[in-house]
Structure formats: C-alpha cells, structure tokens
Amino acid sequence: MATPLEQLVGHYERRYPVAADGLVIGCVGQDVPVELVTAAGALPVRLAGRPGTDVTEGETYLGRGVDPAASSVLTRLLTGEYGRLDRLLVSRDCEASLRLFYAVRELRRLEPGLGLPETYLVDVLHLPHWTTTRYVEGRFAELVAVLERWTGTRLTGPRIASAIMAHDARRDLWRAVSALRRDLRLTGVQALAAFGAVLPVVEHNRLLRQLLKSDLDVHTGRRIFVTGSSHDNPEVYRSLEEAGCVVVGEDHDWGDLLAARLVGEPTLAALVERYQYNGPTAARGSIADRAAHTARAAVDCAAELVVSYVRRNDDAPPWDFPAQKEALGRHGIPAVMFEHQEYGSIDLAEVFVG
C-alpha cells in the first residue's frame, strides 16, 4: 500500500485532467478565496502550467511578453488538458493573470466553439486601509452571488464557517509539513507535493495528518531558501536538489506563503481580511516588506543560501533582490539571483554548490 507521502506525490503529479463527482472550478492565482468554492459544494482546483511544452497557442492570444507560466495555463485550457472544468475563477494577483482572464473572456465571446468555461475575475486589493477592506467586501459579496448561481447552493453563514475551518486546518497542517522540511525529513519537491496535491480539502487534511505521523527519512544537502518567481511545478526544486541542495523554505504562493496567514474567526468578514492582508508576494508587496519577510523566513529555516529564481518576463522579483540581499547579509546569509530563466528550468552552469 502506498505511504501517505507517496499518495500525496501521486495526487500532485496527476493533478490534471481533473476527475471529480461534483462541480469543478478552476482557480488561477493565490487571491481566489477557495473557502467560498468549498462552501458552495464545488472542488477548487488551482491551475498550473506545464514546463517544456509548446505554448504557441497561448502566446497567440497573450503575446510573448507575458510570464510563460500564464501562456502555458491558457494553452492547457485551449487544448483541454485540465479535463472537466465547469467554471473558472481568475484573481488579479499579477498582470499575467489579468491578461489571461481577459483572453478567456473574449475567446468565449468570439469563439464559443472552443468550449472554454465561464470565467469570473476576483479583484482583491492589498492596501492596508479600511476603504480597501470595504472594496474587497463588495467583491466577495459579488463572488458569493456568482457561486450561488453557478452551483445552485445557498452560501449560508454555517456553510462558509465550516469551509473556513477546514481550510484553516489545512493551513495548520501545511505549517507542520514545513517544520518537517526544516528538519530535513522532507525535500523541497516533496513539500511542494504536500502543498499542491489536488484533493477535496477534507481528504487532503486526512493525508497530511497521516504524513505527519509517518516514519520519514532524513535528507542531507546545502540548505536553500527560494524567493523570486513562484513555482507551480517541481522542476526547479528538483534541479537544485539534484545538485546537492535541500530546499528548506520559500516565500512564494505555491508553498509556505499559502499557510502564512490563517482566517481565524470563521466569518466572511475575517475571510476578506485574510486575503486582503495575505502576502507579501513579489507582484504585490513593497520592496521593504518583501526584504523583511524573506530575511525572517530564511533565518527561521536556517538557510545557508537564498536563491532568487526569476523567470523570463516576470519583472517584479529583480526589484526586490538588492533589498533582500542587504537584509539577508545582516544575518550572514548569502544570496544569489538567477534571472531571465526559462519556465521550469534553472541554469546552473555557474555552480554555486560545493
């Protein structure tokens, strides 16, 4: 019988095509409140690209100046690789996601034969003001109405509360998974699988609890913390770990940042503030906030080196790096940036491991 870790890795590697009994709602970006999707009785599935494949079809509509991860997602939507996606929620977490939303919306209007799912934009702002909170409250109220129309399910207070508690429980479990990785009992690749396996939240929580009770091997290698572009696939982590490293932490929204902030009180108002104040990501946080966050997280992970990995056409991370390097230097942690990298690969020609 497969171990809990093997099951999680399997669910991660076989994320698509999606097979589910109920409504499947694709999600693009970290600002989609998956709790509301769960409360509506649907399965939220965050969409990842696929490195190393032809993205010409996606680039036809997005152009070649967009983050190739977004072009890959659009290509997979157009070719049907995700399987059954009944609806699509896209958050405005970065420019690439926004462009993807407009492309899907227009393609549905102009070429209905493509069969793209009905889509809705989740617009979350992140300024620390009460007026921003009121704005996001309005957008979440609109989303509730959209989900009720899509699913035919009334999103009552108890349903929303139950979903919030289930997802907060998963965030607590993800934090425990991160602690295992800091103790070198999981690799970075394995941790990404534990975070990104596509499962209903209750089933995901069950496997994570079993994982935490498992007898796991201890790994060795140079302790690496990853910043910069996000990683929706394990290829870059795998390259680093095959080069003698262990990725012990990261600050992007496919990893530790998913668990950085709980909702707490199981109410819609608290959910709004969780998404408003979650971060900071490279695309949304200030340079100072990013530097402070990266330094704290790298110290907590006892990182020996911080790697800023920056994909081609991902313009935000290089602005952060000088301040990050300075903040890390105050803790004696060196940092290196790999810029203009192709999606899913890292050029290790200048070997930095010894």
Rank of each mutant, 00 (worst) to 15 (best):
M1P: 14
V248E: 00
T267F: 03
N205V: 11
E81L: 10
R159P: 02
V306K: 00
A335M: 06
V18S: 02
G41C: 05
K325D: 09
Y16V: 15
D256P: 09
T187I: 08
F321G: 00
G22D: 04
S72H: 13
F225D: 01
D21G: 11
G52Y: 05
I346K: 08
L77T: 11
V34K: 08
L262V: 09
P51A: 12
C94S: 07
L85H: 12
E35Y: 10
V45H: 09
L77W: 13
A2G: 06
A243R: 04
L240N: 01
T267L: 05
G157Q: 15
P112H: 03
L62G: 04
S178A: 14
L212G: 06
K325E: 12
F140V: 03
C27Q: 10
V336E: 14
A260M: 12
I224W: 04
V310G: 00
W254A: 07
I346Y: 05
P128F: 10
S286T: 11
P266N: 02
Q324H: 03
G26Q: 06
Q190C: 03
A243H: 04
D232Q: 12
L98D: 03
G29F: 08
L211D: 03
P322N: 01
T132K: 07
G255K: 00
E250K: 01
A197W: 01
Y277A: 10
A323E: 08
M165L: 08
L43R: 06
G264H: 09
F195S: 11
R46D: 07
H11W: 13
R170G: 13
D314Y: 02
R175F: 01
L212Q: 06
R99W: 15
T60C: 10
R76S: 06
D232V: 02
T156D: 03
Y16L: 13
S72F: 15
D253C: 09
G49K: 09
G63H: 14
D253I: 02
E13T: 15
T75V: 09
A193F: 15
A145N: 07
L77P: 15
E6K: 11
V299I: 09
A70H: 14
D300T: 05
I224T: 14
G41W: 03
L143T: 00
R171Y: 11
P112E: 04
E142F: 04
L127E: 13
G63T: 14
A70W: 13
A335V: 02
R284C: 00
C301E: 02
G228K: 01
V45N: 10
R238D: 14
P68M: 08
V336Y: 06
L268P: 00
L88C: 06
S214K: 06
L257T: 12
D320Q: 02
L147E: 00
P280Q: 07
P266K: 02
L305T: 06
H252C: 04
A179F: 02
S178H: 15
D168I: 14
A303T: 02
R312P: 02
R14S: 14
H11T: 11
E59V: 11
R222K: 14
V55K: 05
G354R: 10
V246C: 05
D93G: 13
S214W: 10
L62T: 05
A145E: 12
A292E: 13
V218Q: 07
L208V: 03
F352L: 08
V189R: 15
R87T: 04
D289R: 13
Y12C: 14
L186I: 07
G22E: 04
V218T: 12
C301M: 03
E13W: 15
D168S: 15
